[in-house]
Amino acid sequence: MKRSKLQTVLCIDDDDEYNFLTQEAFNDYQYDGQLVFHTSAEAALEYLSQLDELPNVIILDINMPAMNGWDFLDAFEAKQFMGSEQTHIFMHSSSVFDSDKERAAGYKYVCGFIDKPILQENIEAIANQYF
């Protein structure tokens, strides 16, 4: 059952256990679209460059080893993907520092900030507001 036009979601997070929780939140939401996980920003960029159409939503963890969330955003902007203005990026972190939220607001493609853990309600809110 399609509940909205939210069809493709990419989650970028190095924490596999956490990705399990995200998966569960999407299950609770009864999401029937495509949900893809990547555990590194580099792999995610590689994945994106091979797509014909970008995902509707990218949920991006900030704290990752090597290339972190901010590095991913810079690379994403630099690559100028086709139709990237249709992609909604949500920063995602267990950070409790407002400086991260302020910084997130400075990026063009960033639509919001979701505190961990992500819940069914967060997905509902995104779907209702943007799709």
Partner: peptide, 21 residues
């Protein structure tokens, strides 16, 4: 404080989530 809160918080969020599931 930043690292401690993040690095501690992340696994605790996981643990808490797993328990609930």
């Amino acid at each position: 404080a930043y690292v401690a809160t993040h690095d501690l918080r992340a696994p605790i969020i996981n643990l808490d989530g797993m328990v609930k599931i």
